[in-house]
Design a binder for these strands. Sequence first.
DNA 1: GCAGCTCCTTGATCTACGTCAATGAACGCG
DNA 2: CGCGTTCATTGACGTAGATCAAGGAGCTGC
Lengths: 241, 241
Amino acid sequence: MLMQSKNAFENAELAVELTRGPCLSSVFRASSTELVETGQAICWEGDDAKHLFQIVEGVVRLHRIIGEGRRVITAFHFAGDVVGASLLGEFLFTAEAVTDCKIRRISRKNFHQEVARCDELRPAYIDLLCRENAAAHDQMVLLSKKNAEERLCTFILRLASRPGARRRDVLRVPMNRQDIADYLGLTIETVSRTITKLAARDVLVAQGRHDLKILSMEKLARLSGGADDFSAKTCHRVSIH
Amino acid sequence: MLMQSKNAFENAELAVELTRGPCLSSVFRASSTELVETGQAICWEGDDAKHLFQIVEGVVRLHRIIGEGRRVITAFHFAGDVVGASLLGEFLFTAEAVTDCKIRRISRKNFHQEVARCDELRPAYIDLLCRENAAAHDQMVLLSKKNAEERLCTFILRLASRPGARRRDVLRVPMNRQDIADYLGLTIETVSRTITKLAARDVLVAQGRHDLKILSMEKLARLSGGADDFSAKTCHRVSIH
DNA sequence: GCAGCTCCTTGATCTACGTCAATGAACGCG
DNA sequence: CGCGTTCATTGACGTAGATCAAGGAGCTGC
C-alpha cells in the first residue's frame, strides 16, 4: 500500500523529529534527494566544505586516511543524521555510502543564513554540535581504554539502540568487518574472532555477514565495559526491565 | 609587584585575542578570577553543567573515569581556553588543575543569553565548538592508529605549537608522566621508555621532569606519523623557515 | 549449477606494549 | 642539609592483539 512505499521515507523523517527536533531537518526539506550507490563518496577529506548533507536513507561512514593505508573511521551516520555540521573550512573526513543511500544537500552559506535567521534553528544546531562532541568523547574512551571484546560489545549496543535497528532480536549490521575494524581500532581478524568468542558464550550469534542475533542484551551491556555514557544508560534500562 | 601580578593576566587576555578573537573572552571579563590549586577539581563528571569556565592562567586536564581505576584524559586546556562550551546537560568530564590556576566562570544561562544577544559572539561560539570537534577527531586518529612513538611526538608537537610554550628550544611540559600516559592511551613506563628512545636518537633531551630540550623539530614532525591536521601544519611551518 | 569473485573465519606465530618489580632522581619539609 | 615521599627510569617477563597464511562461505554472473 501507499503506506508501505512511503515507509522508509517517513521513518527517516520520524527519526529526525525524534533525535534533532523538527528544525534542522526542515532546512533540507526544500532540497531534492540524490542517490549515492554503495561505496561512492559524498565528499572528500581536504575539500572545501561547501555543503552539508542529510542522510534520508542508508548508512554512511566518515573516515580519514593516515599514512600508507591506515584508515580510521570516525563515525557512522544513519537516516536522519546531518553530516558536515561541525566544520569550519574544509572536510576533515571522506564520507562514503556503506549502503545505497538517498541524501539531500544544502550549501554551507544557505545553512548558516537559515540558522542565523531562525531562532528555533539555532539551539537545534548547537545541540547537534554538542552531541557530536559527546560521541567523539565516548569514542576516545573506547579507543583509549577498552579491549577488543568491550569495543565490539559497545559498538553492537550502539547499533542496537537505534530505533528500528532490531527486528525482534535480530540486529542488522550494514557495514562489513573491515569497516567495523577501522571504526574500533582493531583488525578484521580480531573482530571476527571476538564475534566467535561472544557466540561461544551465548551472547549473540552471527547469521550471515550482516545479521547478529542478540541472545542476551544484559550480557552485552555487562561486557561493554561501562562508563561510556551510552552503555550506562543501557545498563540502567536493562536492570529496570 | 602589582605589575607582576597583572602580567600573567594581560598575557592570558592576549592569548585569548589571538586564538578566539575578542568576543568569547569578553563574556568572562566581568567575572572575578578564582584561584584553583594544583590537583583541585573545577567541576565533576556527571554534575549539572551550570557554569562555563575560562582559564586565565595555568593548565587544566579533563578526564573521565571508566571502571576500576581506568582514567582517560580527553583534553588539556591552557590560558585563554574555554571549558564546558560543548555541553548540553551535564559535565562529561572532571576538570582538574594540572598547575595552580586562575579561572573565571559564567553561568550557562548567562552565557547563552549573551551568545543569543550578540551577533558577533555567535560565530565565535560555533567556531569554538568546531575546533573542539576537530581536536577530538585528531585524538581519535592518534588513539586508533598511532604507535607509542608517534603518539608522543604528536603530543610534543602539539605542546610546542602553543605560542610561548617554548623558551628557545626548551619546551615546558607542565603535566606529569601519568597525565601524559592517560592522554595518549599508554602507560607511564612506555612514555618514559619512548622519551629515552627519542633522546638516544637525538630528537630531544629530558631536562628534569618538566622540561624537554627539542633537538630537531624536523625529526619530531617526521616521527609524529602525519595526517594529524596539526602535524601537517607544523611540518609546513618547519619546512619553510 | 558451477566458476570466480569478494568477504569472512580460523590457525600459527610474532611483537609492541603492558605488568610487575627494583632502583634512582627530584622535590618538599623538618 | 639530609630524610622521606613522590615521581620517573630501567629491566625482566607476559599477553592481547597484529600479522601472515590457509581454507571456507556467500554472492554474481554466465
